[in-house]
Design a binder for these strands. Sequence first.
DNA 1: CTGAAAGCGCTTACAG
DNA 2: CTGAAAGCGCTTACAG
Lengths: 349, 349
Amino acid sequence: MARRKVTSIDVAREAGVSQSAVSRAFTPGASVAEGTREKVHQAAVRLGYRPNAIARSLITRRSHMIGMAVSYLDNHFYPELVQGISDHCQKRGYHILLFTAGEGDAANQELQRALDYQIDGLVLASVSLSSEIADRCHAAGIPVVMVNRVSDAPTASKVTGANEHGGRTIAHFLAKAGHTRIAYLAGLEETSTNRDRETGFMAGLAEAGASLHARAVGNYSAEQSARAATEMMQGSAPPDAIFCANDHMAIAVMDALREGLDLSVPEDVSIVGFDNVGPAQWPTYSITSFSQPVDAMIEATSETLFEAIEAAVEGEAFEAEAIELPGKLIVRRSSRIPPGTGDTWELPA
Amino acid sequence: MARRKVTSIDVAREAGVSQSAVSRAFTPGASVAEGTREKVHQAAVRLGYRPNAIARSLITRRSHMIGMAVSYLDNHFYPELVQGISDHCQKRGYHILLFTAGEGDAANQELQRALDYQIDGLVLASVSLSSEIADRCHAAGIPVVMVNRVSDAPTASKVTGANEHGGRTIAHFLAKAGHTRIAYLAGLEETSTNRDRETGFMAGLAEAGASLHARAVGNYSAEQSARAATEMMQGSAPPDAIFCANDHMAIAVMDALREGLDLSVPEDVSIVGFDNVGPAQWPTYSITSFSQPVDAMIEATSETLFEAIEAAVEGEAFEAEAIELPGKLIVRRSSRIPPGTGDTWELPA
DNA sequence: CTGAAAGCGCTTACAG
DNA sequence: CTGAAAGCGCTTACAG
């Protein structure tokens, strides 16, 4: 069973050339005669040879692997992100080394491992970075891009949706539609998405002369959200609108209220979400949601990453960028609607 | 910007030991004095050293990377699989090198690349394997496990749900509930899941003395399924039940029929799906579905893979296994129900 | 327990 | 255009 792998030396012997020639034949742009390259390729096919990417990585110091850490694949937003970014990477000859990790210490250990693999770049989605790891990456010249989750690591690039503006828009929208008991269902408290959406939401309420009627925490979990919303609605002063910090929670809430409590949405309570993920668009839910432009976020992440990688290759410094991509409030049937509203709603200037 | 990376030689100098000693200090079970190990670790921390996994892979001929190919991350079944298998791998010190690929040629090229990276094993989910790649893996001693998608490559292991039995069960269930115009909405024709589910379904219909009333193709795509189901129901002889080859299609069909055509499920037509994914369980859909045990499939895939990898390490041959995991028909509200049925329904013995 | 040395499979100056 | 040689950063017999 110890089949020795075919190496460039075997191919060299078979083709009657030097080992260097074999290497060159497999290196685009290397200086080889066309005939030599042809001879080598034929010998390679005969022997079933393919260059060993690990050995190549060791000598070139470029692994062509991008580390990607992700933690909540059950929120449909993230699989979309993973698939999109992976597709972009593959188009450029890079591959994703995946790290599934929760928050905190375990996540950090896994990220450390990613570095051991000499990844050329690191994408963090739904995971935030300890500044220790951020510094390590920076010291090693490895660009880091955080998507949809941000930390204050100054050397990491950031790609986000318009979290604060979105929260603010939703507050105005709910107030305008005549709601008077507006609640917020928070995601994970320590995440930047939750913090920014809530900050914007609170500012918007204040601007609209409204105040927060109730607040509960769903921690971006379907179960916890269903429970929290049920309690809210069963309390003595149920809200007439709930802004859920993401669609994943909004869906769970709608299910819990409609099926569990036999309430109607939006007649009994308006539900608004954030992300505009696929399921939010399904007619059965039809959730009013502030959109995050997944495709644009994928694009921006890939561009930022590869620009920085190329800069690193050239030995140039790369600047961390912070890109905020615009979204808009997509108005659907899960919420009461201010008169005269179209498919989307914008803050008056 | 050309920061030289810290290597074991730097650490050796700092700790006043040989480079071999550094290596041993980072190798569990290697023969080093405790004091030496301590000294080395401290020097390593001072210098920010971590062993280069690429260099280690080259010499040990084990990359500790598992290739995983997946194509339809929008079907929620697959993200669950990816996350579960990745978690198992990480627990054992392995990591997933991800390949997102469609069917056919592009997929094969990407798989070829996976091999270039000297992966220790390969998991294929929703992707089937050309026998050429299968042979290459086998020749290289790389175990392959196909999950939820099977090809006739004899050297690859297979983990599936009870596709044929599930299809058969659904046929009997629909007949027993009194349906007389039973339709099948096919997934991708060339996939083993579609083939096996349909084969079982047709056999079951025949056994129940029923025949297929209509057949359409949804190709496992939400859009195509919605369109196909809409056409079916608008035809001159609409079905009174549709078995959709997976839940992803069943959801799209329910949305299209309820929202697009204003039909009621199951009053106007029963819908049955396959997989029992999360969204099928959401109260709003509440889809009768033949379950695939995701967790058991994750477990079986990981076990099979690591057994084979360990065998390969020991130089032993590993046998390809074919594991079929049982499922059951979870009865919910999307279908008419035979009298006296509980939460699940089984074929009479 | 420890160090010197060979070697994993490549790429890439260097000299011709 | 081509080959011989050094070297990427490790692990692991081998000898002590």
